[in-house]
Write a protein that binds this DNA or RNA. Structure first.
Lengths: 251, 251
DNA sequence: GTAGCAATTTCCATTCAATGAGAATGGCGG
DNA sequence: CCGCCATTCTCATTGAATGGAAATTGCTAC
């Protein structure tokens, strides 16, 4: 069986199918899904039916389909993200109580920033990040700290894969690598409105024993938010707390 | 191919494998996994390797395996739970600011209570619930409101499948169905220490247009917490707010 | 040191479940 | 009435997944 002239296995497809939900469109028709995941139509229907049977996908009255509750449950029961989240939340709340703006926790994944957790205050500035959402590395303070505190080979391979990053540095730091060095020197990264205009992102690394960033903790504040004096220390304290909590888990 | 003398497909196994992570043991050896998921050993190793390749599972240095980050990402990008969570969080924060104890949001799933979101205050009473965790229906206030505001056939089928529930009612409400009726009459459920000793759970339903519970919102307070006067109204206001936000989504 | 046990990996002949092109059916809008 | 698209069904084909067993590695205890 598994006549796979197409060359991909059930799992390949499963991942592509689930990956077709990109956060913008939360539910799709199966035909659309087939197109986006590049799965033969008939196969998509069969696969979708199976997935629904298992609860990994759910189908509403209109036949639209979306990731199912069971999938969410399985993924949230245990996973690196859950551990991180649990360790970080109390400290994020501390930051939150000082800064009163979006507080975010993220990791590096596939050359992108993956947001793990996010606390939003009512009345915070607008910011498009969302949990499980991704953001570009070299346009966010979270991404830059993560990169700055990554092993050298990670930095280099990122640069070779993303030459456009080098062009992104501002006038002051004329060299991207020097920019990263500056971040390491200061211990934090601050960026103005590269993703959302009118906002500044400030982020610090959550370091492991090797001095490598396991995650990044950051806030998004309105431009010209002058309390930076209190923000950075608050972030650093929280980051250390998170690192300590994760503690006995080496990289 | 797909020689399935065992009678289950890749998906059956996938679900069983992921389901083997029950929250207690967050990582398992593959051999253990094979036993728990009832998958032939050789097959388990092959499947696990494939899953790791796709990021649905991650493997640490010691060979222990656990749900992967990619799985978490896919599941959290879009799913009923995410929508609910997003709609509910602001209102849960309101409750939180009044009650200052664990605030939880849950839905009914497979005759159990599935916790979707949970805000914990520092210093809250101990409570074993956790996000994506499950709890018994008839021993929790969340479960009881969910059941009380479920369509009749759901209640009945629950009772036939769980005769032990009937025996669980306290001396006052000698009849389980009457107990449910009382909850509907009052509009909320309150339970003393049936799960965690020394605590009381109070929960209200988040109703849709049909008057069916889409979710339940509840708090866990120390026994003898006398502010019930403020707790129930706060919960009810929040629940209405959540229902309104979910609004245009019929059942 | 080595016996004993469990976890892990590799091998391989077997086989049938999954495949996907296409035809058939169902709805909706113009 | 007629396209157009989504969905469901049919069916002959086949190679990918299967799992029993054996080989290998890694521990712990004696």
């Amino acid at each position: 069986m598994a006549n796979s002239p197409s060359g991909d296995s059930v799992l390949d497809r499963l991942v592509r199918v689930l990956g077709a939900f990109d956060g913008t469109r939360s539910s799709l028709s199966i035909a659309t899904l087939a197109r986006r995941a590049d799965v033969p139509l008939a196969t998509a229907y069969r696969l979708a039916a199976d997935l629904v049977r298992h609860g990994l996908l759910s189908k509403d009255e209109a036949g639209m389909v979306r990731p199912g509750l069971r999938l969410w449950e399985l993924a949230n029961r245990a996973s690196p993200a859950v551990d991180l989240r649990q360790a970080a939340i109390p400290f994020m709340e501390d930051v939150q109580s000082v800064v009163r703006q979006h507080t975010q926790l993220a990791v590096l994944r596939d050359d992108e920033v993956l947001v793990i957790e996010r606390l939003s205050s009512r009345g915070s500035v607008v910011n498009q990040a969302q949990i499980a959402g991704r953001m570009p590395v070299h346009r966010t303070s979270l991404g830059m700290v993560l990169l700055a505190y990554s092993p050298n080979h990670v930095q280099e391979s990122y640069l070779t894969r993303h030459p456009e990053a080098v062009a992104s540095v501002d006038a002051v730091s004329f060299d991207f690598r020097r920019h990263l060095a500056q971040i390491r020197l200061r211990g934090y990264a601050a960026f103005d409105g590269r993703v959302d205009a009118g906002t500044t992102g400030i982020a610090v690394p959550v370091l492991d024993l090797h001095g490598t960033a396991q995650a990044a903790l950051g806030v998004v504040v309105p431009l010209g938010f002058e309390n930076s004096q209190s923000v950075v220390p608050a972030l650093m304290t929280a980051a250390r707390g998170i690192a300590r909590t994760l503690g006995p888990a080496p990289a």
